[in-house]
Design a protein around this nucleic acid. Structure first.
Lengths: 225, 225
DNA sequence: ACAAAAGTGTTTTCTATACACCCATGG
DNA sequence: CCATGGGTGTATAGAAAACACTTTTGT
């Protein structure tokens, strides 16, 4: 058997939503290679940690963030994707709520920031490719899984959900049809609280009903917006 | 930086279709660990080959098969999935045509065989989990991409396609509606040839029109059966 | 002439879409 | 009382599903 000298990293494409913008979480690299360039948070997997643990650790070390939703995206193994030699990276797709938006750069990161997905800087390694795939995943996923909840506050007015969908999908949404369809999924609880945004009629707050959601998933229900 | 001692493998979950059965391609392991047990074809990635090259090489070495369709499935990194130590595996999903069904076991495989997906033996490592995920992918994928063509001969009667779909989806299909819908996709060419299956009216042969298919994909058309 | 598989249209039901006015609050 | 955003129902069009008889061949 040959001796392998392949090393393994994890990278995270993490999205947040605020004020009608989807943003991606990036760090500025403190060390070579690509020192000073923007990149996805990530790093080498330790021998005694799972892949998920590695992503969460790196994310927390480099950005201070605690992730809300995480799933595997894709693995990248091109021969020359890393100037340090043969490095294979397993990329993850993550979402965070705005109330977790406290960024603290440290370890390998000299800076952390959110970038609107239409105003991205140039990226180290093949991270542009990874991020593009993650954005596609976000668009596809939001139409068949109610992941919007991972991007909003726990309690939110219906209009926030609507704005999120119209932002991600890049098109206008009919308020009445959207509401009809979404409430038909039966995964939202309407609360008695109201919120006022300065002017206009105050909105009822809604909340995602996780129990009901997982029950429906188990029954094989497919969500589609 | 710590020194990693993680090794990297690829594994392939490959499916074939014949006579109303979906089968998975398995090998019997010639060496430890799990010597003598059935497993997915696969093995260690070499330093100077891409992940795809590694899968295709291992598949060819161990089973003699040339793959028809291949895509990445998922990466598995649990700490104790391999008794040899820390081994992360990147799994692929593959399809082969029946006319490529010439199996030759060699290198790490002492035997190769097709197993109906409802009559699987117990498997080495976490390969049961991988194969289950691959079967789910097959079911999902066949409803929105015409991958059936990768499982049938180049020329086939329409009833073969129909039987394939009803096998994979595990339910009856209305012949008229299915034909209407599928021909509506405009990715099938009807040939002038006919085929007779012993008794009954001979069937027209069809062929997948790749050029037309990729053109429609480029235009952003979504296929749904 | 009969058994066996292939081929073919129409009707009904459901789902998606388009569309406009009233309501509750703050200033 | 006016500006602002929130909340609601109906009519139409298009897609999916249900459904049965005729055609071509081999025996």
């Amino acid at each position: 058997m040959n001796t392998q000298s392949i090393r393994l990293t994890v990278d995270a494409a993490v999205f947040g939503y605020e004020e009608g913008h989807i943003s991606a979480l990036l760090i500025r690299r403190k060390y070579e290679p690509f020192k000073g360039q923007w990149a996805l948070p990530g790093g080498f997997v330790l021998n005694d940690e799972s892949l998920e643990d590695a992503v969460e650790r790196e994310l927390h070390e480099e950005t201070g963030i605690k992730i809300n939703y995480l799933e595997q995206l894709y693995s990248y193994g091109n021969l020359n994707r890393d100037p340090r030699g043969r490095v294979v990276s397993i990329a993850y797709f993550g979402l965070v709520r705005p109330d977790t938006f406290k960024l603290i750069a440290s370890t390998d990161a000299q800076e952390v920031a959110w970038f609107g997905i239409h105003a991205l800087p140039s990226l180290a390694f093949d991270h542009k490719e990874i991020l593009t795939m993650a954005i596609d995943r976000l668009k596809a996923k939001i139409t068949y899984q109610p992941i919007g909840f991972e991007l909003l506050d726990k309690k939110f007015p219906f209009s926030d959900l609507e704005k999120l969908y119209s932002t991600v999908l890049g098109r206008d949404i009919d308020r009445r049809n959207f509401r009809k369809k979404f409430l038909g999924l039966k995964v939202l609880d309407e609360l008695d609280e109201k919120i006022s945004k300065g002017s206009g009629r105050p909105a009822n707050l809604f909340q995602f009903n996780q129990k009901r959601y997982f029950q429906l998933i188990k029954e094989g229900i497919v969500f589609e917006i």
